[in-house]
């Protein structure tokens, strides 16, 4: 009986340890988006140049929707040149890059766009509706939308050259919607 007790307490602690080990090894930043494989929420914003920016207008294209902010350093500063470079490389192949600045001041957003010489459409989400619609919880976050209008990849943290190319090439290889 005494012997049994000696083993019972460490044994009872075992499942707790397993649970803790599992929990502590997971990154609290990796939160799976429930929007994956779902249709990308539609939105209508106005770009810094005053043009309309709507997802619906680009149906059939691969859309790279990037949420950023001028105060998001270094992530947004690292990926801005990557996005611009790839936008120039892929714009003729049915890809559109869209930037949505969140929780930011107009002047700061304009300065950021000018400093990096961004030529893809950028708009401010002044009310936060678009960011909440996409379940954005930080910047930078990037959504890759396929030609059918479904969110296929959500990337948290700065977009790299490789990630951009790999994802976009994969989505471009898929058949166009009928």
């Amino acid at each position: 009986m005494k012997r049994l007790w000696r083993w019972l307490i460490p044994l009872a602690a075992l499942p707790v340890l397993v649970l803790l080990a599992y929990g502590f090894r997971m990154s609290p930043r990796d939160i799976p988006s429930p929007l994956l494989q779902k249709p990308a929420p539609s939105f209508g914003l106005t770009t810094l140049d005053g043009a309309a920016l709507a997802l619906a207008a680009h149906r059939g294209k691969v859309v790279v929707l990037n949420f950023w902010a001028s105060w998001c350093y270094p992530g947004c500063y690292e990926e801005a040149p990557v996005l611009e470079k790839n936008w120039r490389a892929y714009r003729e192949r049915g890809v559109i890059v869209m930037g949505v600045a969140i929780q930011d001041k107009r002047e700061a957003v304009e300065k950021f766009v000018k400093d990096f010489g961004l030529t893809f459409p950028n708009a401010q989400d002044l009310t936060g509706t678009v960011s909440v619609d996409y379940g954005v919880y930080g910047v930078p976050e990037t959504f890759f939308v396929d030609r059918q209008g479904r969110i296929r990849v959500k990337h948290v943290s700065a977009v790299t050259d490789e990630l951009f190319r790999d994802t976009v090439e994969r989505l471009l290889a898929e058949p166009e919607p009928r």
């Binding site: 969140i102 929780q103 009310t127 936060g128 509706t129 960011s131 909440v132 954005v136 919880y137 930080g138």
Partner: peptide, 22 residues
């Protein structure tokens, strides 16, 4: 979403303000 252990009701952040408006 931008805080640690705070509800949207209690957070003074801009994002929480926008969420309350929504």
């Amino acid at each position: 979403v931008v805080c640690q252990n705070l509800s949207v009701a209690d957070s003074p952040s801009e994002m929480a303000g926008q969420m309350r408006a929504i």
